[in-house]
Design a protein around this nucleic acid. Structure first.
Lengths: 134, 134
DNA sequence: CTCAAAAGGACTTTTTATGTCTTTTTAGGG
DNA sequence: CCCTAAAAAGACATAAAAAGTCCTTTTGAG
């Protein structure tokens, strides 16, 4: 369980690569796709999602491409993963707040809440800067 | 991401219900399925998986049914989840040990290792006894 | 021997993942 | 203004996984 999809993996590869480039240099999607070995059309969709929420900035037309939407140390792995995979929800009932639909006193619920919070904590502390260097 | 499948949810519901019954009382699958509102044929498959790894013991024929394979405080949520969902692997490369196939120095890898270990830690500390009472 | 129950296997249907293709918008440069 | 380069958008296509059903077989008690 809890497996990242290929989309998520591609997303990370792509944006980490972008973070590893000079911050002011606009990168072609086709170049990124080639560098990280991801189907360009698929990566395009992913970067469109990034663009919508500001993780990257896009420029169209001749000389266009992508740069990071903010400094690499201000983008976390959590941002990236949630951008393409949706929120981190180990169990559906977590979204309903405190109570499951199954029973008023569901003992499993707080466990999932705990899992969610721990995972978010871990991913939220890792930035693209961390991932791009080293 | 990280969402439990319905199968996993059913599995938990079913075995927690079983754990809430008197330990020596054999339970019919059909009764369990009705009690936790899961398609009986589907739950049957799940309990077959449980049975194979000893989480439950099954008895065939007249008067048959299921009981827990060991005391409720010796079965963890991790046991149950991994029984039906497979091992907890946030990213494929975690299984290959220390190195990703993508690059020799993948900085993302230790993060997934950390996630895996945290989640396993949380789920491994919750037993069916905890979940069945209260 | 018969009936009740789980086990096993083959199947179907639905949903999600993983892409591709084509058209449209935007922008730069002559 | 026109041409070309690039991302955006949307409609498809295919494949894999999830979710569930159905039928047959095995096992056991009475």
């Amino acid at each position: 369980m809890m497996e990242l999809t290929r989309k998520g993996e591609y997303a990370i590869r792509g944006i980490v690569y972008l973070a590893s480039r000079p911050a002011d240099q606009v990168c072609l999607l086709s170049d990124i796709a080639a560098a990280v070995d991801v189907p360009p059309t698929f990566l395009a969709k992913i970067f469109q999602q990034f663009s919508k929420i500001g993780l990257v900035k896009s420029y169209r037309g001749t000389g266009g491409g992508f740069i990071l939407g903010r400094p690499a140390d201000k983008i976390t792995l959590l941002d990236v993963v949630e951008a393409v995979e949706g929120p981190i929800i180990p169990n559906r009932c977590v979204v309903n707040g405190i109570d499951c639909d199954r029973s008023t006193a569901c003992n499993v619920h707080p466990v999932w809440m705990n899992v969610q919070s721990q995972v978010r904590g871990i991913l939220g502390k890792v930035t693209l800067k961390d991932l791009a260097e080293g």
